[in-house]
Design a protein around this nucleic acid. Structure first.
Length: 240
DNA sequence: AACTCACTCAACCGCCTACAT
DNA sequence: TATGTAGGCGGTTGAGTGAGT
């Protein structure tokens, strides 16, 4: 169908020139493919006119790059591809085109969509910040603080409460890990080198916990003011 | 069957950078 | 050097669709 109205609340450049927007028809796809196979894409700005398309150059480029290119790999991402994406994202961040360049047949748009709809959510459920690729210690700190307060004041009339569940964040990690994380945070705040405590133990438990814990509910905000500069390596994403 | 809700992903926009003039 | 243009990128949107009630 045609986007005759401005559905996104903005004035699209194509409308100004009377150009078509929205989903591509098979006929348009064929025109674009035929033209590029014969002439190459050349200058995207002049391509639509030469190819007989009422589209802007940007739209043609995007359609070709993300959908019509012959070397595009279709279908679900393999586990190996997923791991590569996570590893590259931990290094490159949201540089989707850079990530895509290392995954033959995959487009930046496809990887970006897959990250936002699958991987990001899965990392959050595992208690891992998808931006920093580190454990979400903001949650650990909050949960630990409330737990310790309530446990200290518990009595026969005050049965122990599952604080993380009450907070809607579910079980995060086991108590030992929670203590280690709290220690780590404390060291950070006191400018003490964590390596002086037990970094190896901490990291190994984090890795272990990320592999065995049950999924926890996703929290809306994933930004943290308490991010660590410790790369959270060697975790594997749980298949669901 | 009808409706609601959540999820997916193609397509768009605005911004940025590289390059030409 | 300043300005204009084209192409590329990342963030966002919303139609389509399937699952659940």
């Amino acid at each position: 169908f045609l986007f005759s109205t401005n559905v996104m609340g903005k004035i699209p450049c194509c409308d100004k020139n009377g150009l078509k927007r929205g989903p591509w028809t098979p006929e348009e796809d064929k025109k674009l493919i035929d033209y590029i196979q014969k002439h190459g894409h050349g200058r995207w700005r002049t391509l639509p006119k030469n190819a007989g398309l009422k589209r802007c150059g940007k739209s043609c480029r995007l359609r070709w790059a993300n959908y019509l290119r012959p070397d595009i790999k279709r279908g679900r991402f393999s586990f190996e591809e997923e791991e590569i994406i996570i590893q590259l994202h931990s290094v490159l961040g949201n540089k989707w085109s850079a990530i895509a360049s290392r995954l033959p047949g995959r487009t930046d748009n496809e990887i970006k969509n897959y990250w936002n709809t699958h991987i990001r959510k899965r990392l959050l459920r595992m208690g891992i910040d998808p931006v920093t690729h580190t454990p979400r210690l903001d949650l650990l700190e909050l949960s630990s603080a409330i737990c310790s307060t309530l446990y200290n004041s518990s009595s026969p009339h005050n049965p122990q409460i599952n604080v993380p569940n009450l907070l809607g964040i579910g079980p995060i990690m086991d108590p030992d890990l929670l203590n280690l994380a709290t220690t780590f945070l404390s060291c950070q705040q006191n400018q003490i080198g964590f390596s002086q405590i037990n970094q190896t133990q901490f990291q190994s438990q984090l890795t272990q916990a990320s592999q065995i814990q049950n999924p926890v509910q996703e929290i809306q905000s994933c930004t943290t003011s308490n991010t660590l500069n410790v790369p959270f390596l060697s975790y594997r994403v749980l298949q669901m």
